[in-house]
């Protein structure tokens, strides 16, 4: 797993208080990891802070799974 994926996973575990094993790439923040809409806002902020990237609102709305987050950040970092 990439460094970015590791870090994303760590942030999700910390913010949602879930077990690491549950944070699979396919896991949905809301459906599988118990987040509500405010949690996902906070999560996106944490990604922005940790990776020093800007995630505009329309992009943030499309980030619903762990993989979505990893892909978005990897793309931003590669650009």
């Amino acid at each position: 797993m990439s460094e970015i994926a590791d870090k994303v996973k760590k942030i999700v575990v910390e913010h949602l208080g879930v077990e690491e094993s549950k944070v699979t790439p396919e896991a949905s923040f809301i459906d599988d990891l118990g987040a509500d809409s405010l949690d996902t806002v906070e999560l996106v902020m944490a990604f922005e802070e940790a990776f020093n990237v800007e995630i505009p609102e329309d992009a943030a709305e499309k980030i619903t799974t762990v993989k979505d987050a990893i892909d978005y950040i990897e793309k931003q970092k590669a650009a």
Partner: peptide, 10 residues
């Protein structure tokens, strides 16, 4: 300001 927690008000 954009980093303000969504949990601030509640």
């Amino acid at each position: 300001a954009r980093r303000l927690s969504p949990f601030f008000i509640p």
